[in-house]
């Protein structure tokens, strides 16, 4: 399934719970969730580790809006809103970790 996280990992535990619960599939970071996908963020290690079992995506317009598009973690796939739509249709279910 597709897991969607929209919270900064340093503000809320949505990403932590998502990573601890998810049984494979893909993770899409949107809104404040994209901060997790940036170099030297305290959550970067967790995300790297999760890449073993989850494909990780981040919404590029959200990274750009936050001035963080030039420091995206290796292994994170960037998508636009069209890519977001594709991820939703490619997975049978999606869960937003609000």
């Amino acid at each position: 399934m597709l897991h969607i996280v929209n919270k900064s990992p340093l503000d809320r535990n949505s990403l932590d719970t998502c990573l601890a619960t998810a049984q494979g599939g893909s993770l899409l970071l949107i809104e404040d969730g994209v901060y997790a996908a940036t170099n030297d963020n305290a959550a970067a290690g967790k995300l790297k580790q999760a890449m073993g079992q989850l494909k990780v995506y981040a919404l590029k317009p959200d990274l750009e809006a936050r001035g963080m598009a030039d420091r995206v973690l290796d292994g994170v796939n960037l998508v636009d809103y069209g890519g977001f739509v594709d991820l939703v249709t490619e997975h049978a279910t999606c869960q937003s970790w609000l």
Binding site: M1, T21, Q23, G25
Partner: peptide, 9 residues
């Protein structure tokens, strides 16, 4: 959590 994650799937 793992069991809940499996149910979610």
């Amino acid at each position: 959590r793992t069991e809940i994650g499996k149910l979610m799937e």
